[in-house]
Write a protein that binds this DNA or RNA. Structure first.
Length: 415
RNA sequence: GUGGGUGUAGCUCAAUUGGCAGAGCACUUGACUGUGGCUCAAGAUGUUGGGGGUUCAAGUCCCCUCACCCACCCCA
């Protein structure tokens, strides 16, 4: 085998492709009534867009982007996540706000592939732009919850936190940094680095020793300004209206720079290490940072591959040849052009039909029909062409009936 | 970028202390030239992931390399 797929990419075979379409339908059915409209953006953008929005301290920008130059010397990158592109599109096309947009688009990140994580993957995302009330946060979380429930993801739980705003976050980060410096000699090497660059990330550390120390660390929720504290408690009050299982996780931090206030993760215990199905949060400053007017916004996104893993298990990914409703079996060379003609006369009637043009006797043709998973076959030999009466055989039951050409054309429409 | 595991026929996997590379499924052909699935018979399939080394002899031992899987970092 000479050519292989590029590391971290995958082939989506018919069975999984069908499952994806189903999933997309379900998402559409849930989002459309809530006012979401579909949107598509280019697969690549100016590198600068992601650098400025996703953030220079995010791992995506630091080491995971497919960055390249085109022949005009433009500095470009394959889209690593959807939000910056969607916001750019809103701004560039002067879309009327508030707006609700959703998308299903491929994303590209050059990190090490493992279960449920690929270098090219498909994300479905939903964004509410121009609405900042806490009820919106609760609405979006509820929509997400319903969505994952409807696609059959079990053992799901929601983690929720508020990471504050411009007013209160800097003060908290300073407090946290002071704490980390104090305990620097007890932390792992990674965490000492994090303490300098991006202190919030220490909460992601899996080291038990670090976790023990961090259990005494100051928490953002204790240092929220009155505005953020009120917002957060109203989000929770909103969620309490629904019977949604969520837990506050004061150590939940997200990897992108643009988040503020509400952050949320949807997790499933059925996924192993990659247990986050969906992440999201509020990003009230992003539009302004991109040069637009101050505009509150919130959104979530999830990976289709991971969602399918969590909802259907492995069987989704096996390859299965789909069956054929009706297969024409020509016998002899004269019957072949006749079948070719018949093929399209039947398709015009909306019948799913194919023909077996490889030569062979009836026995052979039936064997082929069997291995191709045909539900019914139509036997077309010289005898049939002459008499205008054809045998339709049900490959499941073995029952046969004889139909004239006209009966065939009209009668099969109902089968 | 770091660690662990696995690479043998299209697929799932065998192969004893180093000793003729095999089975099941799938495939092709025939028994059966106008009635499939079952059965029976025959057949085809490999640079044992790649390269190098040790040896009379390597799927097996050693070194290098690549790919995939799992995990870490991080994330969807």
């Amino acid at each position: 085998m000479k050519f292989r797929r590029v590391k971290g990419t995958r082939d989506v075979l018919p069975r999984e492709a069908a499952a994806r379409r189903e999933l997309e339908e379900k998402v559409f059915e849930l989002l459309a009534p809530a006012g979401f409209h579909p949107v598509l953006t280019p697969t690549f953008e100016h590198y600068e867009l992601y650098k400025r929005s996703t953030g220079e301290s995010s791992d995506i920008v630091i080491k995971e982007m497919y960055r390249f130059q085109d022949m005009g010397g433009r500095d470009l990158a394959l889209r690593p996540e959807g939000t910056p592109s969607v916001m750019r599109a809103v701004l560039e096309n002067s879309i009327k706000l508030p707006a609700r947009l959703w998308y299903v688009m491929p994303m590209f990140r050059q990190d090490k592939p493992q279960k449920g994580r690929y270098r090219e993957h498909t994300q479905i995302g939903a964004e509410i732009i121009g609405e900042g009330d806490p009820q919106i946060d609760a609405e979006l979380v509820k929509i997400g919850f319903d969505l994952f429930t409807s696609i059959g993801i079990h053992e799901m739980f929601i983690e929720l936190n508020s990471i504050g705003c411009r007013e209160c976050r800097p003060g908290y980060i300073k407090k946290l940094k002071d704490f980390l410096v104090q305990h620097a000699d007890e932390l792992c090497d990674d965490c000492r680095l994090r303490a300098e660059r991006n202190p919030l990330r220490v909460f992601d550390c899996k080291q038990k020793s670090c976790q023990r120390i961090l259990s005494d660390a100051p928490l953002q929720t204790d240092y929220l300004c009155p505005g953020c504290a009120d917002h957060f408690s109203q989000v929770k009050a909103g969620l309490d209206i629904f019977q949604i299982p969520y837990e506050e996780n004061p150590r939940l931090v997200r990897g992108l720079d643009y988040y503020s206030r509400t952050v949320v993760e949807f997790k499933s215990r059925e996924l192993g290490a990659q247990d986050t199905v969906c992440g999201g949060g509020r990003y009230d400053y992003l539009m302004q940072e991109m040069g637009g007017p101050a505009t509150p916004a919130i959104g979530f996104a999830f990976g289709v591959e991971r969602a399918l893993l969590a909802s259907r298990g492995e069987d989704v990914f096996s390859s299965v040849q789909p069956g054929i409703p009706l297969l024409l079996l020509p016998l002899g060379d004269k019957a072949k052009p006749y079948c070719l003609d018949l093929l399209f006369k039947l398709r015009e009637k909306g019948i799913g039909v194919q023909a077996e043009f490889r030569s062979g006797g009836l026995s052979r043709q039936l064997k082929r029909a069997d291995s191709r998973n045909a539900e019914k076959v139509l036997i077309v030999g010289d005898k049939e062409i002459e008499s205008g009466s054809f045998i339709v055989r049900d490959m499941g039951t073995g029952e046969q009936e004889e139909l004239t050409f006209d009966e065939l054309i009209s009668g099969l429409v109902n089968t």
